[in-house]
Amino acid sequence: MSIVEDLKEKREQKKKEKELDLQYGVKEKKGPGQYVLATLLILYTIIVALPIILVFVSAFTDEDALIKNGYSYFPEKWSVGAFKMVFASGDKLAAAYGVTILITLGGTLIGLLCMSLYAYALSRKDFRLRGFLTIYSMIPMLFNGGTLSGYLVFTGTYHMKDSLWLLMLPICCTTMNIIILRTYIQNSVPEELMDSARIDGAGEWRTFFQITLPLMKPTLAAVGFMMATGYWNDWQNALLYITSDYKRPLQLLLINIQKMIEQLVNNPNIASAAKAAMAGSIPQQTTIMATVVMVIGPIMVIYPFFQKYFAKGLTMGSVKG
């Protein structure tokens, strides 16, 4: 059967399913129970959203009002002072943004490319080394060296402390993602299409880059977005390995703010008068919240564009090909 016919048939099938859905929807009653359920779900969603709202509200609260009244959803006085502060010391933030964007894009792209190539090789059925490579990629899911051993190997043996590569490479190739990509190639990229490209004289590289990779877009989007959030949110590797100021990603910036405050507050050697004098240099609470907004904001903006790929990506991961 040609691919065009196959597509046509699929489209028709979908149409039929839609019609069935409509019929079913008509039958469903919108009784009082439905309204109770809807209300409960809306309430629950509001509760879940409240902490996030608090971040945004307190980022726009006046610092003095916050100290006087505490955190509140209804601040006495609004202000954009916190953001002014954040942008005033903007070099640090800009540098941190740069580092985070670099490792997020770098890590995700390196990972997607390497893993897609690997998955492509695994999908070649007459490739005898395939069995070994499959097992090789599975083992890290079952057994791992843990944080301590990784730390000692990377810093002691490889001497890579303070290298941005350590924020990208250790988490760029994971078993689960390789399985998802391989399953997708096997189930959703038509074998005939790749074969016909080969018959037409395209080499394996060309087949991969011109046929397979473009057809993998949906799964690349799903896996890529999950990887990107992983990189964006990773703080542990940064905390362990990064020592230079200018190599700090955003998350480490947040953690360092935390540390700075703790040291100042908990240090008994600093007299209270001195503490008061230093108060100006302690990040204010609203400033911290403004920084948090800057850190979590970008993901919230990008997330809706990738949302539709999630459910698919998740389900694919749970089913072995």
Binding site: V48, I52, W232, V292, I299
Partner: peptide
């Protein structure tokens, strides 16, 4: 409801 999973724990700490 999915949004919280995308907030890093470094940020959650402050929340």
């Amino acid at each position: 409801l999915i949004i919280p999973i995308f907030i890093s724990y470094a940020a959650v700490t402050f929340i």
